[in-house]
Design a protein around this nucleic acid. Structure first.
Lengths: 205, 205
DNA sequence: ACCTGAACACCGTTCAAGT
DNA sequence: ACCTGAACACCGTTCAAGT
Protein backbone atom coordinates (compact mmCIF):
# COMPACT_ATOMS: atom_id res chain seq x y z
CA UNK A 1 0.00 0.00 0.00
CA UNK A 2 2.75 2.47 0.77
CA UNK A 3 5.64 2.96 -1.63
CA UNK A 4 6.48 1.53 -5.01
CA UNK A 5 5.11 -1.94 -5.51
CA UNK A 6 5.29 -2.65 -9.17
CA UNK A 7 8.40 -2.48 -11.33
CA UNK A 8 10.36 0.00 -9.18
CA UNK A 9 12.60 -1.12 -6.37
CA UNK A 10 12.27 0.13 -2.83
CA UNK A 11 13.54 3.32 -1.23
CA UNK A 12 14.68 3.99 2.30
CA UNK A 13 11.37 5.71 2.92
CA UNK A 14 9.44 2.63 1.79
CA UNK A 15 11.36 0.52 4.26
CA UNK A 16 10.70 2.91 7.13
CA UNK A 17 7.00 3.11 6.31
CA UNK A 18 6.61 -0.64 6.09
CA UNK A 19 8.42 -0.96 9.40
CA UNK A 20 6.09 1.55 11.04
CA UNK A 21 3.15 -0.43 9.73
CA UNK A 22 4.39 -3.69 11.19
CA UNK A 23 5.16 -1.91 14.44
CA UNK A 24 1.68 -0.49 14.69
CA UNK A 25 -0.11 -3.69 13.63
CA UNK A 26 1.90 -6.31 15.49
CA UNK A 27 4.12 -4.55 18.03
CA UNK A 28 7.84 -4.18 18.59
CA UNK A 29 8.66 -7.86 19.29
CA UNK A 30 7.25 -8.79 15.87
CA UNK A 31 9.21 -6.12 14.06
CA UNK A 32 12.10 -8.27 12.83
CA UNK A 33 14.30 -7.68 9.83
CA UNK A 34 13.11 -10.92 8.28
CA UNK A 35 9.44 -10.12 8.73
CA UNK A 36 9.99 -6.65 7.36
CA UNK A 37 11.78 -8.06 4.35
CA UNK A 38 8.91 -10.45 3.73
CA UNK A 39 6.42 -7.60 3.91
CA UNK A 40 8.42 -5.82 1.21
CA UNK A 41 8.78 -8.99 -0.88
CA UNK A 42 12.50 -8.87 -0.57
CA UNK A 43 15.34 -10.89 0.91
CA UNK A 44 16.42 -9.86 4.44
CA UNK A 45 19.84 -8.86 3.16
CA UNK A 46 18.24 -6.26 0.90
CA UNK A 47 17.34 -4.15 3.95
CA UNK A 48 21.01 -3.62 4.69
CA UNK A 49 21.38 -1.54 1.61
CA UNK A 50 18.95 1.00 3.12
CA UNK A 51 19.97 0.79 6.77
CA UNK A 52 23.34 -0.37 8.14
CA UNK A 53 21.62 -2.28 10.96
CA UNK A 54 18.41 -2.66 12.90
CA UNK A 55 19.31 -0.03 15.47
CA UNK A 56 19.54 2.70 12.87
CA UNK A 57 16.20 1.62 11.46
CA UNK A 58 14.67 1.93 14.92
CA UNK A 59 16.28 5.34 15.33
CA UNK A 60 14.62 6.45 12.12
CA UNK A 61 11.27 5.19 13.36
CA UNK A 62 11.77 7.02 16.64
CA UNK A 63 12.45 10.22 14.73
CA UNK A 64 9.28 9.82 12.73
CA UNK A 65 7.15 9.05 15.76
CA UNK A 66 8.47 12.02 17.71
CA UNK A 67 8.11 14.35 14.74
CA UNK A 68 4.41 13.61 14.74
CA UNK A 69 4.09 15.64 17.95
CA UNK A 70 2.08 18.78 17.30
CA UNK A 71 1.48 20.94 20.37
CA UNK A 72 -2.14 22.10 20.35
CA UNK A 73 -2.95 25.57 19.04
CA UNK A 74 0.42 26.73 20.37
CA UNK A 75 1.40 30.42 20.38
CA UNK A 76 1.13 31.00 24.12
CA UNK A 77 4.31 30.67 26.12
CA UNK A 78 5.21 29.97 29.73
CA UNK A 79 4.08 26.93 31.66
CA UNK A 80 1.10 26.24 29.38
CA UNK A 81 3.44 25.85 26.44
CA UNK A 82 5.65 23.39 28.30
CA UNK A 83 2.56 21.48 29.32
CA UNK A 84 1.29 21.46 25.73
CA UNK A 85 4.64 20.23 24.49
CA UNK A 86 4.64 17.36 26.96
CA UNK A 87 1.06 16.41 26.10
CA UNK A 88 1.84 16.52 22.39
CA UNK A 89 4.79 14.22 22.95
CA UNK A 90 2.62 11.79 24.87
CA UNK A 91 0.03 11.79 22.10
CA UNK A 92 2.69 11.19 19.47
CA UNK A 93 4.02 8.22 21.40
CA UNK A 94 0.52 6.85 21.89
CA UNK A 95 -0.21 7.13 18.18
CA UNK A 96 1.96 4.09 17.41
CA UNK A 97 1.87 0.77 19.15
CA UNK A 98 4.93 0.45 21.43
CA UNK A 99 5.90 3.98 20.39
CA UNK A 100 7.33 4.88 23.79
CA UNK A 101 9.53 1.80 23.90
CA UNK A 102 10.91 2.50 20.45
CA UNK A 103 11.80 6.06 21.36
CA UNK A 104 13.16 5.09 24.78
CA UNK A 105 15.37 2.37 23.35
CA UNK A 106 16.98 4.55 20.73
CA UNK A 107 17.40 7.36 23.21
CA UNK A 108 19.12 4.93 25.52
CA UNK A 109 21.38 3.92 22.67
CA UNK A 110 22.65 7.45 22.28
CA UNK A 111 21.52 7.67 18.66
CA UNK A 112 18.12 8.79 19.78
CA UNK A 113 16.70 11.85 18.19
CA UNK A 114 17.38 14.79 20.45
CA UNK A 115 14.26 16.25 18.88
CA UNK A 116 11.99 15.42 21.80
CA UNK A 117 14.30 16.78 24.44
CA UNK A 118 15.10 19.84 22.38
CA UNK A 119 11.45 20.71 21.95
CA UNK A 120 10.89 20.49 25.69
CA UNK A 121 14.07 22.40 26.45
CA UNK A 122 13.09 25.18 24.06
CA UNK A 123 9.72 25.57 25.72
CA UNK A 124 11.35 25.77 29.14
CA UNK A 125 14.00 28.22 27.99
CA UNK A 126 11.27 30.38 26.49
CA UNK A 127 9.78 30.58 29.96
CA UNK A 128 12.92 32.38 31.11
CA UNK A 129 15.20 29.65 32.39
CA UNK A 130 18.88 29.29 31.64
CA UNK A 131 19.81 26.84 28.93
CA UNK A 132 21.51 24.46 31.34
CA UNK A 133 18.49 24.40 33.64
CA UNK A 134 16.24 23.96 30.64
CA UNK A 135 18.29 21.02 29.39
CA UNK A 136 18.21 19.24 32.72
CA UNK A 137 14.54 19.86 33.33
CA UNK A 138 13.73 18.70 29.80
CA UNK A 139 15.63 15.48 30.47
CA UNK A 140 13.65 14.86 33.63
CA UNK A 141 10.38 15.58 31.83
CA UNK A 142 11.36 13.28 28.98
CA UNK A 143 12.20 10.42 31.30
CA UNK A 144 8.88 10.76 33.04
CA UNK A 145 6.91 10.91 29.79
CA UNK A 146 8.67 7.88 28.32
CA UNK A 147 8.31 5.86 31.48
CA UNK A 148 4.69 6.77 31.88
CA UNK A 149 3.65 6.04 28.30
CA UNK A 150 5.65 2.80 28.20
CA UNK A 151 3.64 1.61 31.15
CA UNK A 152 0.41 2.76 29.61
CA UNK A 153 1.06 0.96 26.34
CA UNK A 154 2.16 -2.24 27.99
CA UNK A 155 -1.06 -2.28 29.99
CA UNK A 156 -3.02 -1.91 26.75
CA UNK A 157 -1.22 -4.91 25.39
CA UNK A 158 -1.91 -7.02 28.44
CA UNK A 159 -5.53 -6.01 28.44
CA UNK A 160 -5.94 -6.93 24.78
CA UNK A 161 -4.49 -10.39 25.37
CA UNK A 162 -6.59 -10.64 28.50
CA UNK A 163 -3.91 -11.66 30.96
CA UNK A 164 -5.68 -9.96 33.80
CA UNK A 165 -8.92 -8.44 32.67
CA UNK A 166 -12.29 -9.73 31.46
CA UNK A 167 -13.75 -8.77 34.80
CA UNK A 168 -13.22 -5.15 35.82
CA UNK A 169 -9.89 -4.44 37.45
CA UNK A 170 -9.37 -5.30 41.08
CA UNK A 171 -8.63 -1.65 41.81
CA UNK A 172 -11.42 0.55 40.50
CA UNK A 173 -9.99 3.86 41.65
CA UNK A 174 -6.35 3.04 41.64
CA UNK A 175 -5.18 2.55 38.07
CA UNK A 176 -8.06 4.22 36.31
CA UNK A 177 -7.34 7.58 34.83
CA UNK A 178 -3.96 7.36 33.20
CA UNK A 179 -4.21 10.88 31.88
CA UNK A 180 -4.71 12.26 35.37
CA UNK A 181 -1.62 10.35 36.47
CA UNK A 182 0.28 11.85 33.58
CA UNK A 183 -0.79 15.38 34.44
CA UNK A 184 0.12 14.78 38.06
CA UNK A 185 3.71 13.94 37.17
CA UNK A 186 4.03 16.88 34.81
CA UNK A 187 2.64 19.20 37.46
CA UNK A 188 5.15 17.92 39.95
CA UNK A 189 8.06 18.70 37.66
CA UNK A 190 6.72 22.08 36.58
CA UNK A 191 5.98 22.98 40.17
CA UNK A 192 9.55 22.21 41.11
CA UNK A 193 10.73 24.35 38.25
CA UNK A 194 8.69 27.34 39.43
CA UNK A 195 10.00 26.87 42.92
CA UNK A 196 13.57 26.79 41.65
CA UNK A 197 13.04 30.11 39.90
CA UNK A 198 11.55 31.80 42.93
CA UNK A 199 14.48 30.69 45.05
CA UNK A 200 17.34 31.59 42.75
CA UNK A 201 18.61 35.16 42.80
CA UNK A 202 20.36 36.65 39.74
CA UNK A 203 23.57 34.95 40.81
CA UNK A 204 24.90 33.13 37.75
CA UNK A 205 24.25 33.44 34.04
CA UNK B 1 32.50 -19.96 42.21
CA UNK B 2 29.05 -19.44 43.60
CA UNK B 3 26.77 -22.36 44.34
CA UNK B 4 27.24 -26.12 44.27
CA UNK B 5 29.79 -27.23 41.71
CA UNK B 6 30.68 -30.75 42.58
CA UNK B 7 28.29 -33.66 42.92
CA UNK B 8 25.17 -31.64 43.76
CA UNK B 9 22.88 -30.30 41.11
CA UNK B 10 21.91 -26.66 40.83
CA UNK B 11 19.30 -24.70 42.70
CA UNK B 12 17.22 -21.75 41.60
CA UNK B 13 19.49 -19.53 43.63
CA UNK B 14 22.57 -20.85 41.81
CA UNK B 15 20.99 -19.99 38.50
CA UNK B 16 20.10 -16.45 39.60
CA UNK B 17 23.59 -15.85 40.95
CA UNK B 18 25.29 -17.11 37.81
CA UNK B 19 22.97 -14.90 35.77
CA UNK B 20 23.86 -11.86 37.87
CA UNK B 21 27.52 -12.63 37.32
CA UNK B 22 27.17 -12.80 33.55
CA UNK B 23 25.11 -9.62 33.63
CA UNK B 24 27.74 -7.76 35.58
CA UNK B 25 30.70 -9.11 33.60
CA UNK B 26 29.35 -8.98 30.06
CA UNK B 27 26.14 -6.94 30.08
CA UNK B 28 22.49 -7.60 29.33
CA UNK B 29 22.84 -8.43 25.60
CA UNK B 30 25.22 -11.26 26.49
CA UNK B 31 22.95 -12.68 29.15
CA UNK B 32 21.35 -15.45 27.08
CA UNK B 33 19.83 -18.65 28.31
CA UNK B 34 22.38 -20.65 26.34
CA UNK B 35 25.34 -18.73 27.69
CA UNK B 36 23.96 -19.04 31.21
CA UNK B 37 23.52 -22.77 30.77
CA UNK B 38 27.10 -23.08 29.57
CA UNK B 39 28.35 -21.15 32.61
CA UNK B 40 26.54 -23.67 34.81
CA UNK B 41 27.79 -26.65 32.77
CA UNK B 42 24.28 -27.61 31.91
CA UNK B 43 22.04 -27.91 28.87
CA UNK B 44 19.89 -24.83 28.09
CA UNK B 45 16.73 -26.83 28.70
CA UNK B 46 17.81 -27.44 32.29
CA UNK B 47 17.21 -23.79 33.12
CA UNK B 48 13.51 -24.23 32.45
CA UNK B 49 13.17 -26.41 35.45
CA UNK B 50 14.17 -23.44 37.64
CA UNK B 51 12.47 -20.63 35.74
CA UNK B 52 9.49 -20.93 33.39
CA UNK B 53 11.04 -18.46 30.94
CA UNK B 54 13.65 -15.77 30.55
CA UNK B 55 11.34 -12.97 31.63
CA UNK B 56 10.79 -14.48 35.05
CA UNK B 57 14.53 -14.92 35.43
CA UNK B 58 15.01 -11.24 34.65
CA UNK B 59 12.28 -10.35 37.12
CA UNK B 60 14.16 -12.28 39.79
CA UNK B 61 17.37 -10.42 38.95
CA UNK B 62 15.53 -7.11 39.11
CA UNK B 63 14.26 -8.01 42.57
CA UNK B 64 17.73 -8.84 43.74
CA UNK B 65 19.23 -5.68 42.33
CA UNK B 66 16.57 -3.45 43.87
CA UNK B 67 16.79 -5.21 47.22
CA UNK B 68 20.42 -4.18 47.39
CA UNK B 69 19.27 -0.60 47.96
CA UNK B 70 20.21 0.52 51.47
CA UNK B 71 19.33 4.13 52.28
CA UNK B 72 22.22 5.71 54.13
CA UNK B 73 22.09 5.95 57.92
CA UNK B 74 18.30 6.30 57.66
CA UNK B 75 16.15 7.20 60.69
CA UNK B 76 15.36 10.77 59.74
CA UNK B 77 12.14 11.35 57.88
CA UNK B 78 10.73 14.01 55.61
CA UNK B 79 12.36 15.14 52.39
CA UNK B 80 15.82 13.91 53.38
CA UNK B 81 14.49 10.39 53.70
CA UNK B 82 12.89 10.51 50.27
CA UNK B 83 16.12 11.84 48.88
CA UNK B 84 18.09 9.08 50.60
CA UNK B 85 15.74 6.47 49.24
CA UNK B 86 16.15 7.74 45.69
CA UNK B 87 19.93 7.90 46.03
CA UNK B 88 20.02 4.37 47.45
CA UNK B 89 17.99 3.13 44.52
CA UNK B 90 20.35 4.81 42.09
CA UNK B 91 23.35 3.24 43.79
CA UNK B 92 21.74 -0.19 43.73
CA UNK B 93 21.08 0.12 40.00
CA UNK B 94 24.63 1.31 39.41
CA UNK B 95 26.06 -1.62 41.33
CA UNK B 96 25.28 -4.01 38.45
CA UNK B 97 26.10 -3.50 34.82
CA UNK B 98 22.90 -2.62 32.93
CA UNK B 99 21.04 -2.76 36.25
CA UNK B 100 18.67 0.04 35.34
CA UNK B 101 17.69 -1.59 32.07
CA UNK B 102 16.98 -4.88 33.77
CA UNK B 103 14.73 -3.25 36.35
CA UNK B 104 13.05 -1.00 33.80
CA UNK B 105 12.30 -3.88 31.47
CA UNK B 106 10.66 -6.04 34.09
CA UNK B 107 8.75 -3.10 35.46
CA UNK B 108 7.51 -2.40 31.96
CA UNK B 109 6.43 -6.01 31.70
CA UNK B 110 4.15 -5.68 34.70
CA UNK B 111 5.93 -8.41 36.63
CA UNK B 112 8.38 -5.86 37.95
CA UNK B 113 8.99 -5.86 41.63
CA UNK B 114 6.88 -3.15 43.17
CA UNK B 115 9.58 -3.02 45.81
CA UNK B 116 11.27 0.06 44.42
CA UNK B 117 8.09 2.04 44.02
CA UNK B 118 6.80 0.93 47.39
CA UNK B 119 9.92 2.07 49.15
CA UNK B 120 9.68 5.49 47.58
CA UNK B 121 5.95 5.69 48.23
CA UNK B 122 6.44 4.80 51.89
CA UNK B 123 9.01 7.54 52.31
CA UNK B 124 6.68 10.07 50.73
CA UNK B 125 3.68 8.95 52.77
CA UNK B 126 5.80 9.23 55.91
CA UNK B 127 6.31 12.86 55.00
CA UNK B 128 2.58 13.40 55.43
CA UNK B 129 1.13 12.89 51.98
CA UNK B 130 -1.94 10.87 51.12
CA UNK B 131 -1.37 7.37 49.84
CA UNK B 132 -2.66 8.18 46.37
CA UNK B 133 -0.40 11.20 46.07
CA UNK B 134 2.50 9.16 47.42
CA UNK B 135 1.90 6.43 44.85
CA UNK B 136 1.81 8.84 41.94
CA UNK B 137 4.81 10.82 43.09
CA UNK B 138 6.75 7.61 43.66
CA UNK B 139 5.97 6.51 40.12
CA UNK B 140 7.26 9.78 38.73
CA UNK B 141 10.41 9.53 40.83
CA UNK B 142 10.95 5.94 39.75
CA UNK B 143 10.62 6.80 36.08
CA UNK B 144 13.13 9.58 36.44
CA UNK B 145 15.62 7.42 38.33
CA UNK B 146 15.38 4.56 35.86
CA UNK B 147 15.67 6.82 32.85
CA UNK B 148 18.59 8.68 34.32
CA UNK B 149 20.59 5.65 35.36
CA UNK B 150 19.89 3.85 32.08
CA UNK B 151 21.45 6.75 30.29
CA UNK B 152 24.36 6.86 32.68
CA UNK B 153 25.11 3.17 32.26
CA UNK B 154 24.84 3.23 28.51
CA UNK B 155 27.33 6.09 28.38
CA UNK B 156 29.74 4.01 30.49
CA UNK B 157 29.43 1.23 27.97
CA UNK B 158 30.09 3.50 25.02
CA UNK B 159 33.05 5.03 26.75
CA UNK B 160 34.55 1.64 27.51
CA UNK B 161 34.27 0.56 23.88
CA UNK B 162 35.54 3.95 22.84
CA UNK B 163 32.89 4.83 20.32
CA UNK B 164 33.24 8.50 21.00
CA UNK B 165 35.95 9.09 23.54
CA UNK B 166 39.73 8.73 23.63
CA UNK B 167 39.93 12.50 23.42
CA UNK B 168 37.96 14.36 26.10
CA UNK B 169 34.31 14.84 25.28
CA UNK B 170 33.28 17.56 22.90
CA UNK B 171 31.22 19.15 25.65
CA UNK B 172 33.34 19.68 28.75
CA UNK B 173 30.69 21.31 30.91
CA UNK B 174 27.62 19.81 29.41
CA UNK B 175 27.54 16.13 30.26
CA UNK B 176 30.03 16.13 33.09
CA UNK B 177 28.61 15.67 36.53
CA UNK B 178 25.97 12.98 36.25
CA UNK B 179 25.30 13.03 39.97
CA UNK B 180 24.50 16.73 39.89
CA UNK B 181 22.08 16.04 37.06
CA UNK B 182 20.49 13.33 39.14
CA UNK B 183 20.08 15.58 42.15
CA UNK B 184 18.62 18.27 39.93
CA UNK B 185 15.84 16.00 38.75
CA UNK B 186 15.09 14.74 42.23
CA UNK B 187 14.98 18.31 43.53
CA UNK B 188 12.54 19.24 40.80
CA UNK B 189 10.15 16.48 41.77
CA UNK B 190 10.47 17.05 45.50
CA UNK B 191 10.03 20.78 45.00
CA UNK B 192 6.83 20.15 43.14
CA UNK B 193 5.68 17.91 45.93
CA UNK B 194 6.27 20.59 48.57
CA UNK B 195 4.45 23.10 46.44
CA UNK B 196 1.50 20.75 46.07
CA UNK B 197 1.28 20.46 49.84
CA UNK B 198 1.45 24.17 50.49
CA UNK B 199 -1.34 24.71 48.00
CA UNK B 200 -3.70 21.95 49.10
CA UNK B 201 -3.55 22.64 52.81
CA UNK B 202 -3.80 26.22 54.07
CA UNK B 203 -0.39 26.97 55.45
CA UNK B 204 0.71 26.02 58.93
CA UNK B 205 2.25 28.85 60.92
C1' DA C 1 14.35 -33.31 42.09
C1' DC C 2 17.10 -32.08 38.43
C1' DC C 3 18.97 -32.83 34.00
C1' DT C 4 20.03 -34.63 28.85
C1' DG C 5 19.27 -34.84 23.81
C1' DA C 6 17.21 -33.50 20.14
C1' DA C 7 14.46 -30.82 17.86
C1' DC C 8 11.40 -26.52 16.33
C1' DA C 9 11.01 -22.19 14.77
C1' DC C 10 13.18 -18.54 14.68
C1' DC C 11 16.94 -14.31 14.93
C1' DG C 12 20.62 -10.21 12.89
C1' DT C 13 24.26 -9.72 9.77
C1' DT C 14 27.81 -10.45 5.95
C1' DC C 15 29.24 -10.89 1.37
C1' DA C 16 30.00 -12.29 -3.19
C1' DA C 17 27.43 -11.91 -7.09
C1' DG C 18 23.77 -10.43 -10.12
C1' DT C 19 21.02 -6.56 -13.00
C1' DA D 1 21.15 1.80 -7.42
C1' DC D 2 19.08 -2.02 -5.49
C1' DC D 3 18.67 -6.81 -4.79
C1' DT D 4 19.52 -12.30 -4.56
C1' DG D 5 21.44 -16.57 -2.52
C1' DA D 6 23.72 -18.68 0.62
C1' DA D 7 25.83 -18.91 4.55
C1' DC D 8 27.47 -17.85 9.68
C1' DA D 9 26.70 -17.75 14.24
C1' DC D 10 23.48 -17.44 17.00
C1' DC D 11 18.54 -17.16 19.75
C1' DG D 12 14.23 -18.93 23.38
C1' DT D 13 11.48 -22.78 24.23
C1' DT D 14 9.40 -27.60 24.32
C1' DC D 15 9.32 -32.29 25.47
C1' DA D 16 10.18 -37.04 25.90
C1' DA D 17 13.29 -39.48 28.40
C1' DG D 18 16.82 -40.43 31.75
C1' DT D 19 18.69 -40.79 36.97
Amino acid sequence: MTGAENGRRHTRDDVARAALRILDDYGLPDLTMRRLAAALDVQPSALYWHFPNKQSLLAELADRIVSRARPSESAYGGTPRIRAEAAALRNALLSYRDGAEVVASTLALGLGSPVARNRLAAAIAADGFGSETARRAATALLHFVLGHVSHEQQRMQYDSIGVLSAAPTASPLEEEDTEAEFVFGIDLLLGGLELARSRSAPARP
